[in-house]
Design a protein around this nucleic acid. Structure first.
Lengths: 196, 196
DNA sequence: GCGTTGCGAAACACCATCGTATCGAAAATA
DNA sequence: TATTTTCGATACGATGGTGTTTCGCAACGC
């Protein structure tokens, strides 16, 4: 076991990557999962439909695999200061608003989760959970070190921080750039209620 | 002008309502705007396709009109206490998570806004703006009365309050009921940073 | 009662996508 | 070279949506 015998022509890694990229691109551009057509993906990837059907039996499996390639590039949250760590976290979050892949997973997380539970679960595992844990660690360390109040409601604190940025990126009225100091403003405002 | 002559049989108000209700229902159930089929709406409304096409030339117009019927039932935010007003606001928001119409407009707001800008604009006007203004009024009055710090960043404060609840309702891992005291917890946690 | 318009139902041609099958060429092993 | 498998391309019937038209009946003003 291990090295698998390859009797014939091996499957093209390039084609596989092109297919996944095409799918991610289309989702990132706003195409819903339900409207994703295999035909369109194949055309965009410059690939025959056969090549897609040979690998994935249905659309959802394809999207799950596509999501799996999206790794969450977490910022380093190793500062001694809770505020500094929170600012870093929120800054990354703000920048990611303009990232293709992030728009992609945000769209799925926020809208398709009801219709594709399997997909949503996978997405949470890949994209949300690690960030959640990282931020929870920051808050928890702040509580342990005494920089934050001992009675901090950690879940609510995380929701306020993340939710505030989420609100700005998704519910704002115009498409203007977000203010450069938004991360600091949110951190200062919310942390004010966390300090002893 | 004014009273319009009606040569023949008047259009059925009942049919019109049935069509709009059907459209809202389907969106509320998770059907994306792009996937909404006129056929399905007609079938669900117990109406001929003709009746739909006679009134709306395209799907987007129909959905815009459907959204227009969704009025925002704002809570009364007339308490003297900022905390009490905020708790009322967040409580309504939490309850609405389970409301059909709210799920409908949330879905559109969060996912379809990129693809249907006209729709998103209309939605913001109807559903988001009045609530936003109401909450802004609460915070502003708190600042004026001295209950909140004078240097409160109002936009960020609103984002933190609303965003926290939004985060809980949309990004939570499980489908469990939200904690009953969530509104109080968010209010206390965030307001802690706003008080002088 | 007449003319007009709306109603629901059905049929229409058109188009996109579905999932499958077939094709000759390409790429690997033996 | 022979064999095997995948490649992209294309064609296929099936399905389901599109927007339009036609039909007979219903509801209104005159």
């Amino acid at each position: 076991m291990g090295a698998v015998r390859t009797p014939g022509r091996p499957r093209s890694e390039k084609a596989e990557k092109a297919i996944i990229d095409a799918a991610i691109d289309m989702i990132a551009e706003g195409t819903g999962v339900a409207e994703l057509s295999i035909e369109a993906i194949a055309a965009r990837a410059g690939v025959g439909k056969t090549t897609i059907y040979r690998r994935w039996s249905n659309k959802e499996d394809l999207v799950v695999d596509a999501l799996a390639t999206l790794k969450a590039p977490l910022p380093e949250l190793d500062s001694q200061s809770v505020r500094e760590n929170v600012v870093r976290y929120l800054t990354v979050m703000r920048h990611e608003t303009h990232s293709r892949r992030t728009r992609c997973i945000m769209n799925i997380a926020l809208s398709e989760s009801d219709r594709f539970p399997h997909l949503a679960e996978r997405f949470r595992e890949i994209a949300i959970k690690p960030r959640r844990e990282a931020l929870r660690g920051v808050v928890q360390r702040g509580v342990d070190s005494g920089e934050l109040r001992a009675d901090v409601d950690i879940e609510v604190a995380m929701a306020a921080l993340t939710g505030a940025m989420l609100f700005f990126t998704k519910w704002r009225d115009n498409d203007d750039e977000l203010p450069a100091d938004l991360a600091e403003r949110i951190a200062d405002q919310v942390l004010g209620g966390l300090r002893p």
